[in-house]
């Protein structure tokens, strides 16, 4: 149940296209850095570092789907719900860079493509859904759960479709199936994967919202899109 299109290897997409997406990824990550620093100031490194470690650890945990079949989380939507889109995109990007550099997961020359799909496109799609649904749905735990489910499912599908787009631009090999057919298959498969991701994200976010609603970025303030700095917590822990 690993996303089929996730972690693109070297050589799948032609070099000029990969280079273009690498430039795009660098530009967007620089914007995320600026926005993240505005939100977190000198807390950026420790806070985003710990959230990135959480995303990394969450990706390592397998959950059962059917007997013998297990999946794991991508986590972009979960991070967007919990820490906001800018820090989330930053954290997932760092996770992908470290996975490529330290763990040889995904090609070095495809890093720009992987960051674009999973960290930027996936997170942006999730956050758009979050902003819209939180305005429409009641501000209850159920509303939050539905939002989390929809946001992560759509983010997985959109990230997969970003790969379809990239393949169409720079894949090198023409497929027998048409663009519409490939898009349909990829969207269908990833919608199934997204159901698992959505269920887990929803329960996880609701758990956090029950205990520390102030830590759920999506619930913060009247305007969900604001990037005000969270109040630092100086006291206790739940350990």
């Amino acid at each position: 149940m690993d996303g089929l299109a996730l972690h693109i290897a070297d050589g799948v997409i032609e070099t000029p296209v990969a280079a273009g997406f690498a430039a795009l990824a660098v530009a967007v990550v620089v914007v995320c850095l600026a926005r993240g620093r505005r939100a977190l100031d000198d807390r950026l490194a420790p806070m985003a570092g710990l959230v990135a470690a959480f995303v990394f650890a969450a990706q390592m945990l397998n959950f059962p789907v059917l007997p013998g079949v297990s999946g794991h989380l991508v986590g972009g939507a979960l991070a967007a719900l919990l820490v906001g889109p800018w820090v989330a995109a930053l954290c997932v990007s760092v996770v992908l860079v470290v996975q490529a550099l330290v763990f040889a997961d995904g090609g070095l020359s495809a890093l720009g493509l992987n960051i674009t799909n999973m960290a930027l496109v996936g997170t942006a799609a999730a956050y758009l859904v979050i902003v819209v649904l939180l305005r429409v749905l009641p501000r209850t735990l159920a509303g939050l759960a539905v939002t989390a489910f929809a946001a992560s499912m759509i983010s997985v599908v959109v990230a997969a479709l970003a790969f379809v787009g990239e393949y169409w631009v720079g894949g090198g090999v023409e497929l027998r199936a048409g663009l519409g057919e490939v898009t349909g298959v990829m969207a269908g498969v990833h919608a199934l994967i997204g159901i698992g991701e959505g269920l887990i994200t929803a329960v996880t976010v609701v758990t956090v919202a029950r205990v520390r609603p102030d830590l759920v970025y999506a619930l913060r303030g009247a305007r969900p899109a604001s990037t005000t700095a969270p109040a630092p917590v100086t006291g206790g822990s739940v350990e």
């Binding site: 420790p46 806070m47 710990l50 969450a58 887990i200 758990t207 830590l215 630092p232 100086t234 739940v238």
Partner: peptide, 20 residues
């Protein structure tokens, strides 16, 4: 599993605050 993941996030975030 997912509730554990939520607890893991809380611990990670609060650890981050303490580290900071």
């Amino acid at each position: 599993f997912a509730a554990g993941l939520g607890a893991l996030f809380l611990r990670a975030y609060e650890r981050g605050e303490r580290v900071w």
